[in-house]
Design a protein around this nucleic acid. Sequence first.
DNA 1: GGTGTTCTCAACCAGATGGTTGACAAAGGA
DNA 2: TCCTTTGTCAACCATCTGGTTGAGAACACC
Lengths: 135, 135
Amino acid sequence: MAADPLSKVFAALADPLRRDMVARLAGGDATVGELAEPYDVTVQAVSKHLKVLEDAGVVSRRRDAQRRPVHLEAAVFDLMTKWIERYRREAEERYRRLDDVLRDLPDDVEPLPPPTSTAPSRRPTPPSPPTGATP
Amino acid sequence: MAADPLSKVFAALADPLRRDMVARLAGGDATVGELAEPYDVTVQAVSKHLKVLEDAGVVSRRRDAQRRPVHLEAAVFDLMTKWIERYRREAEERYRRLDDVLRDLPDDVEPLPPPTSTAPSRRPTPPSPPTGATP
DNA sequence: GGTGTTCTCAACCAGATGGTTGACAAAGGA
DNA sequence: TCCTTTGTCAACCATCTGGTTGAGAACACC
C-alpha cells in the first residue's frame, strides 16, 4: 500500500460508494454512523472505506468523544485536476497543430488517406519507466 | 466489470504504469510494442493494461496491418473534471459560508473554541444510496 | 461501577487485478 | 512458401480488495 499519492487518490475515488460518501461530505462533516446509515453494508465496511479515503488524503478525521467526525479535504482534488488538465491540454494542443498542418497543405498534395503512420517518433522523453508519471 | 463509467476511468488511472502510458500518448499515438518498450514487463501485460484503458474509454485502437496504434481520447477527462469540480466547488462554497458566519458573529458571543460539534445536521439530501454518486 | 453507543481491529472469504508463460492468428518480407 | 513481426488469448499464480463476523477499546450516561 505504498503507492504514490496520485494512485491512491484515483483508486480511492474508483469506488461508487466512496464517491457517494465524498458527495455527501461536500455538504458537511458527518460521523461514521451517519455515513453508513443509507447503505446496505455494515459500519465496519464503511470504516474501511473511510480509511482508504483518509489514506489518500481525501478526508480527515477528528476525535469527538467516541465519535469520529469525517471532514472532506478538498485540496487533494487539485492534484488530480492538475494531472488531468496537463495531459488533456497537451493532447488537445497536438490536435490543434495537426489541424493547422492539414489546413496549410498545398492543394497538390493528396490530403492524406486516414492518418495511418504512427506519430513521427516524437516521444517526448523516455519517461523514466515506472516512476508513476507524476513529474 | 460492469462498473459505471466514472469508476472505470478512475480505476484505469489509478495505476502508475497506465498513467505513464497516457502521459506518453498525449504526445502522439503509439503501437503496443512502442508503449511496452521502456517498461520491465512483457508485451502481454501492456496489452492487458491497454484493454483496461480502452474499456474505460481513455484510449481507442485502430488497425494498421499487424500493428494496433493506440490513440488517447481526451474527451473522457471531462467526465472526471466535472465530477471533481462539482464537489470541490460545493465544499469550498461551504467554507466560504462558514467564514461569513464566523465573521458576522456579534462580539459578545464566544468565538467558538475549536469547532468541535459536527456540522449542524445539515445533510442536504439522503442522496439515494448506492446509485454511484454519478448524477 | 455497570451499561449502551460508537468505532476500530483481526481473521476470514470470494472475487478482481496484475503479472507470468505458451500457443496462435494475421500480415509483411525473404 | 517459409520466416519474422506484432499482438491477442488462455491458463495459471500471487496479491489486493471489499465484504462479513466477532471481539474489544473508548467514552457518556445511569
